[in-house]
């Protein structure tokens, strides 16, 4: 396993700059997740690391090795694709062994490692089958198995969970975490799913329009988003972001917005007034409960405050007992819950 460094990495397609001068150090033995909306350059970045996409300028280092101009086969990486790319004409065992055969590993060794990987991923009983006879989740396991037998310098995961249904996705997420802990592999995982990013990552890298918006721990990017984009992208339901003037006018916010162009507040920080202690500094305002979406333990409320300003609140299901659609209770947002953003989107210190 090794550290991977990207130095001023650029990818241009004609006039379009898909990746703009990305500098990134990917830690050895950790899971780094590149996350962002489609077209943000995350997959292009991953493909450049794999060698499947040429680099316009900049360098890629794996450990001490400069691999920028190397063929994919010489980079010692393993990749898992969104569609798994299992070869339909080969058995599961042959699929897993495929990369080892390229490296002339002795046959007994191949068999041993295929067996180990298959057992680790719980597909040991499927080795003789063809990929077409497997379920989506099993195919996914085989694809990961094919990557881990190689014992590569790092694993590249290109949205490997996107084709699975919600339940399997959560299951495979745990599976990836388990395997990673066992092998202590370096993983670069690309996804557009912020929840997947939060749960898998040691470090989250948020990308937008070919630029790194923020690099940090999941807690970091959630609690202290570096830009308005990150604030909106990470977290579900989305953060409420208002123009500062608007926030003053409709909610009566005072004393927090000074100098900020936009103000953000997480839905869980929009609380029922009764749940915020009276002595806490907070803005209090009445709002109409338009829609209640019950999630189970909690519920998302769509609120309409003064001047038709809409807000989303996340409240515990218990506190819903006295709140119904059409009611107009009082809500409160504590003063230190606000995120402040400058006109250019950058976070401002509080």
């Amino acid at each position: 396993m090794a550290q991977i460094s990207l130095k001023a990495l650029v990818k241009r397609y004609g006039d379009i700059e898909a990746v703009r001068a990305v500098d990134l150090d990917i830690a050895d033995g950790k899971i780094t997740v590149l996350v962002g909306p489609s077209g943000c350059g995350k997959t292009t970045t991953l493909r450049m690391i794999a060698g499947l996409e040429s680099v316009t300028s900049g360098r890629i280092l794996i450990g001490e090795r400069d691999v920028t101009g190397l063929e994919p086969k010489d980079r010692d990486l393993a990749m898992v694709f969104q569609n798994y790319a299992l070869y339909p004409h080969m058995s599961v065992a042959d699929n897993i062994a495929f990369g080892l055969k390229a490296r002339n590993v002795p046959r007994a060794e191949i068999e041993r490692r295929v067996r180990e990987a298959a057992d680790l991923l719980d597909v040991g009983s499927l080795l003789k089958r063809k990929p077409g006879q497997l379920s989506g989740g099993q195919q996914q396991r085989v694809a990961i198995g094919r990557a881990i037998v190689r014992e590569p310098a790092a694993f590249l995961f290109d949205e490997p969970l996107s084709n699975l249904d919600a339940k399997l996705r959560v299951e495979m997420r745990t599976e990836i975490l388990r395997v990673q802990r066992e092998l202590r592999g370096t993983i670069i995982h690309v996804t557009h799913d912020q929840e997947e990013a939060m749960t898998l990552a040691h470090r989250v890298v948020v990308m937008n329009r070919g630029v790194l918006e923020q690099i940090g721990s999941p807690a970091d990017v959630y609690q202290r988003p570096a830009t308005e984009f990150v604030a909106r992208f990470i977290g579900s339901p989305q953060m409420n972001v208002l123009d500062a003037d608007d926030a003053r006018a409709s909610l009566g916010v005072a004393g927090v917005g000074d100098g900020a162009a936009r103000l953000g507040v997480r839905p869980e920080d929009v609380q029922l007034a009764g749940e915020v202690a009276h002595d806490r500094p907070a803005v209090r305002f009445p709002a109409l409960v338009e829609v209640v979406e019950l999630l189970g333990a909690s519920a998302i409320l769509t609120l309409r405050a003064r001047a038709d300003r809409r807000l989303r609140a996340l409240v515990s299901a218990r506190s819903l007992a006295h709140v119904h659609e059409g009611d107009e209770p009082e809500f409160a947002i504590e003063r230190d819950a606000w995120h402040r953003f400058a006109a250019n989107g950058a976070r401002m210190a509080t």
């Binding site: 063929e71 790319a85 390229a102």
Partner: peptide, 18 residues
């Protein structure tokens, strides 16, 4: 034939022709 087939093989240690 999905592109990923040969890309997978190339990452796994084969040349494009292989």
């Amino acid at each position: 034939v999905p592109r990923e087939f040969e890309e997978q093989a190339m990452v796994d240690g084969y040349s494009r022709l292989q």
